[in-house]
Design a protein around this nucleic acid. Structure first.
Lengths: 224, 224
DNA sequence: GCCGCCCCTGAGGCGCTCTTGACGCCGGAA
DNA sequence: TTCCGGCGTCAAGAGCGCCTCAGGGGCGGC
C-alpha cells in the first residue's frame, strides 16, 4: 500500500490523520516540524506528503522549496489560511493540491486518491509472461511463441481473471460469476469447456497443463 | 503552449475563462454540452479539460466516465456545489481537482499550472504512419498514398481514438461513448457502418483489413 | 427553395461463438 | 469390485455478431 508522510505540529490533528489514513489502508509516518519533515522524506521516500504550512521552525513554503528539487511525489498542502493568495503561492511553489482547514476528512481522502492515482506507482506491469506465452492486459492481446493468438470474449474474460491472480487459486463460483454472471454459478461445465479451449490455444501440451492448473472441486490456478 | 478545453453551458463564464486563459498563454477551445465535450476531446486531444458539472444534456459524471477510459490528461471539475459528497464523487470518478463556484481566477490558474506541471510535456507524436496511409492528428488530416482523403466528423472521431491507442484493443462501449455519447452504448451497428466506411477510405483491400481490425464481441484495434 | 452531404436505419446473408449433450477417464468411497 | 462425482473431450445446432448494400431524413450552403 502507499506510504504517506504527515507533517503537522498539532499533535491532535496528526493523531486524527494517522488513524484515518491507517484505516484507509495507508502506511503513515509523521513529522512535527520542517527539519524532521525534510529528513524523513529523504529517509523514507514516501509516495505522498501531506504538509501543514504552519510549522514551528520553518515556513511551509521553505519546506516545499527544500523538497521540490528532488522529491517527485505529490505534495498536498494543508493550511489554516483560505486566502487565494496563499493558495497560489503554495501551488506555484510546487504543491499539487491545497486544502484549507477545517476540512472534510472524506474530501481529503478523495484528493489523496486522485493524487496517488496520477503520480502513483506504475499500476502493475500489465504484461504477464511465461516461457510459452504472454498476456498483455492493457492491449488485450495474447501471443504464443511470438505469434498473436485470437481469443473469444469468453475465453479472454476467463484468462484475464486467472492471470491477474498469479499463483492464487480462483474459485469456480467466482469465475462463473465474473464471466457469465451471478445466475450461472452452477454451470461448472462451462468452465471445463472453456478451460480446455484456452489450454489448446496456450499450453504447449494441452493434455498436461503447465500454466492453467485444475484444483479439483475448487477452481483453477494460473502458475506463472 | 498548452491547449485547454473549457466545458460549460454558461456563455458568460465560458467567455471569461476564454479571455483569462488566453491571456495566460493557453490555447483555448470550448464546448457547451457533454456530447460536444466528448467529441471535441476526442478530436482535439487537449492537454487539460476544465469541466463544469452542470450541463444541459449529460450529467457531468457521465462525461467524466466517457472521458476517463482513454483520456489521460488532467481534468479539473468546476461545480456550483460545495458539498463534500459531490467532491468525493467527482474525484473518485476520475477528476484530478475540484473547484467550487464562485472561485478566484488566480487560484484556478494556479491549480491549472500545478496540474499541467505534473502532467508534464506531451511527447505525443501527432503523426501516425502506416505503409498505406498517414494520420496527422494535429492537422486533422489523412492521406492515403500521398493523396488527401476527406473524413466526416464521425469518421474522424472514430479513427483518432483508434490511432491514439496503437496496437491496443478499444472496446465497442468505449468507442460509442466517446464518439456518440453515453446514451449510445448499445448501438453497435453504428460502429459497423462507420468502420466499413473507414476501411473503404483507408485500407488497400477493404474486404481484408490490415490496419483496422475487428475483435469479434469486444471491439476494434488499430495495428500500425 | 434546391442541392449535397452526412447521419441513421433496415434487410439480407454469412461465419463464428456459445451452449448443450453424450461419452470416457480417473480417483475415492462403499 | 462396483458405483459415483468431478473432469476433459468432441461434436452439433441455435443464435448472435458482423459485413454489405441501399434508402430516407435532416441540416447547412447556395
Amino acid at each position: 500500500m502507499s506510504r504517506v508522510l504527515v507533517v503537522d505540529d498539532d499533535p491532535q490533528l496528526t493523531r486524527a490523520l494517522r488513524i484515518t489514513l491507517h484505516a484507509a489502508g495507508y502506511d503513515v509516518s509523521s513529522a512535527a516540524d520542517g527539519r524532521t519533515a525534510l529528513a524523513k522524506t529523504a529517509e523514507d521516500h514516501p509516495d505522498l506528503v501531506v504538509l501543514d504550512l504552519g510549522l514551528p521552525d520553518l515556513d511551509g513554503t521553505d519546506v516545499l522549496a527544500g523538497l521540490r528539487p528532488w522529491f517527485t511525489g505529490p505534495v498536498l498542502v494543508l493550511s489554516a489560511r483560505a486566502d487565494s493568495q496563499d493558495k497560489v503561492g503554495a501551488l506555484d511553489a510546487g504543491a499539487d493540491d491545497y486544502v484549507s482547514k477545517p476540512f472534510d476528512m472524506g474530501e481529503l481522502l478523495a484528493r489523496l486518491r486522485a493524487l496517488l492515482r496520477r503520480g502513483g506507482p506504475e499500476p502493475d506491469d500489465p504484461v504477464v509472461r511465461t516461457d510459452h506465452f504472454t498476456v498483455d492486459l492493457a492491449a488485450r492481446q495474447v501471443t504464443v511463441d511470438g505469434a498473436v493468438v485470437r481469443l473469444t470474449p469468453t475465453e479472454w474474460g476467463l484468462l484475464s481473471i486467472l492471470v491477474r491472480a498469479p499463483g492464487r487459486l480462483v474459485g469456480q463460483r467466482q469465475l462463473l460469476q465474473s464471466v457469465w454472471g451471478p445466475a450461472y454459478e452452477r454451470e461448472t461445465h462451462y468452465l471445463r469447456v472453456y478451460m480446455a479451449q484456452l489450454r489448446r490455444k496456450l499450453e504447449p501440451d494441452a493434455a498436461h497443463p503447465r500454466y492453467l492448473l485444475t484444483e479439483p472441486g475448487m477452481g483453477y490456478r494460473f502458475r506463472p
